[in-house]
């Protein structure tokens, strides 16, 4: 029962959505599809509660047992509730605890969460520089082509570099855009996208038919 019921649900849901693709929205199966989609958004909303329960359980246990760094867990719990409670209540239910301008939520979002997230993303620039310096080596003919292309593209994407490329005769920037980005890059991207899409479709079919069960813990 623990295996067959989820497989049956997966089969019926998958089948309805696939078949509905070939029927008009105002048909019976089209309406059923729309119902399924609305259910999905509702169920998805409830699953977010699971996350809150998990993080509260793990953090609270750490605080209770005074594990290393337990103080930070208190901050985590405060952060979770400070952001989660206003998010589920109407925007302006309270001038302080709502979500409109000047509320705690607004303040935390604008002056803590947003800058911290931007800072984390900005560290990518440092890591890219370090990874490029370490990994970009002209070890073979292919690696050399890759290296030269990468440097040329980096130059092309900046005004100073574009000016430098323009000094070389033959409209190199336009050539790079047309043949490297719109040619070689695009062909490779499409190859990977087509392969990955087929892989995803095949995996979906295996799931719908109950062949692939590992994601439910059934090998």
């Amino acid at each position: 029962m623990r295996t067959s019921l989820p497989i049956a649900v997966a089969f019926i849901s998958g089948l309805v959505l696939v078949v509905a693709f070939f029927f008009r929205d105002d048909s019976l199966i089209g309406s059923l599809r729309q119902e399924f989609i609305v259910w999905l958004t509702i169920i998805g909303g409830f699953t977010l509660l699971l996350g809150v329960v998990s993080i509260v359980r793990v953090s609270w246990t750490a605080v209770k047992r005074r594990k290393e760094g337990w103080f930070y867990k208190i901050l985590t719990l405060l952060g979770v509730f400070a952001m989660a409670i206003p998010a589920v209540l109407p925007v302006s239910w309270s001038p302080l605890f709502g979500r409109s301008d000047g509320t705690i939520y607004d303040w935390l979002f604008n002056y803590m969460q947003s800058p911290m997230m931007s800072t984390m993303f900005a560290t990518l620039a440092f890591y890219i520089a370090s990874a490029a310096h370490r990994a970009f080596r002209a070890r073979s003919a292919e690696a050399t082509i890759l290296l030269i292309t990468a440097c040329a593209i980096m130059l092309w994407r900046i005004p100073m570099g574009e000016a430098m490329l323009n000094m070389i005769p033959g409209d190199l920037p336009s050539w790079l855009n047309t043949y490297v980005m719109g040619g070689a890059n695009m062909a490779v991207q499409r190859g990977i996208i087509i392969g990955a899409a087929l892989g995803a479709a095949s995996m979906s079919l295996r799931i719908i038919l109950g062949i692939e069960r590992m994601y439910m813990g059934k090998g």
Partner: peptide, 29 residues
Amino acid sequence: MGEELYAASAYLSREPIMTGGLKGQDFVK
């Protein structure tokens, strides 16, 4: 890379029923 990720579960399991799916996918490719 790409579809190798989707093939991984079948590859690691080596179950015929799973590898069959991969071959079908290759045929369509």
